[in-house]
């Protein structure tokens, strides 16, 4: 379904998200999902992949930089997404880039992330992926000493994704709810499309919201929208929270 000025959008299948993005995420592009820890970035990213498989039969790849695969599977089994089965059916593949605490890594000279890019391409080809989730690239900075190099290499990954005909969500860590988009200023990779998940506490009341900050010049709803967590995952209420106040 194409947006009204030529930007094709991929319907995500997530209740409310397709409303506030006026049709879904820009197809074949990356959307940055920024949020503090505990703002459910991982959940929304996995939900994007699961909705793709369940509703549109879109195979998916999930690149995890932080959580281990067993932890991910345990955290989402209450949502009924049967990733084990999808993996066996060849519809889902993990790329495990979570830290390896037992084994020490020593830097001995110049390197790049072409190894990781080759693994992502391999997984995408293996399942014929239409959707990719990358969570969260901010933790890469703690694995390597040279943050300038990490930023350059993450740009390589984002650029590489563009050549793979996949629609992707790349999550990044924030330290404050209303400040810079991300902790390491990595948003310039996918500056075109940015969504922000917030998890604020107002008068002892937990308030979760999502905001579509930018969608590559395509129209979208403005402002923060309330979300809740149900058995289906994150539910986004397309009534603008400003109208509710």
């Amino acid at each position: 379904m194409s947006g009204n000025n030529g930007i094709a959008k991929l319907e995500t299948g997530i209740a409310g998200l397709d409303d506030i993005t006026l049709g879904g995420l820009p197809e074949y592009r990356s959307t940055l999902l920024a949020g503090t820890s505990g703002s459910c970035k991982t959940l929304l990213t996995l939900q994007f992949l699961s909705a793709g498989i369940v509703k549109y039969d879109h195979p998916a790849v999930f690149v995890t930089f932080e959580e281990t695969i067993p932890d991910i599977k345990r955290n989402i089994n209450s949502f009924g997404w049967d990733i084990d089965r999808w993996e066996k059916e060849g519809k889902f593949a993990f790329v495990d880039v979570s830290p390896d605490p037992e084994h020490e890594t020593i830097e001995t000279g110049q390197y790049d992330f072409s190894g990781l890019l080759a693994r992502i391409e391999h997984a995408v080809k293996k399942v014929g992926a239409k959707r990719v989730g990358i969570d969260s690239i901010s933790s890469t900075f703690s694995h390597f000493s040279d943050s300038g190099l990490v930023r350059k290499e993450l740009f390589r990954i984002a650029a590489g994704l563009k050549l793979m005909d996949v629609t992707s969500i790349i999550s990044v860590e924030r330290t404050e709810e209303y400040g810079e988009i991300s902790r390491f200023g990595v948003e310039e990779f996918v500056a075109d499309n940015v969504m922000i998940l917030r998890n604020t506490l107002e008068e002892e009341k937990r308030r979760r919201t999502i905001e579509i900050l930018k969608l590559r010049g395509a129209p979208h709803q403005k402002g923060e929208y309330p979300c809740t967590i149900s058995e289906q995952g994150i539910e986004i209420l397309p009534l603008s929270s400003l109208k509710l106040a």
Binding site: V97, E102, H103, E104, T105, I106, E107, T108, G109, Q110, Y111, D112, F113, S114, G115, L116, R119, T140, H143, F144, E153
Partner: peptide, 21 residues
């Protein structure tokens, strides 16, 4: 493997990774 090149010492234990040229 994340970075390349990476030299993996499998044996003798402990397994260790050396990244870079």
């Amino acid at each position: 493997i994340i970075a390349t090149p990476t030299l993996v010492k499998e044996l003798p234990q402990p397994m260790r990774k050396m990244i870079g040229d």
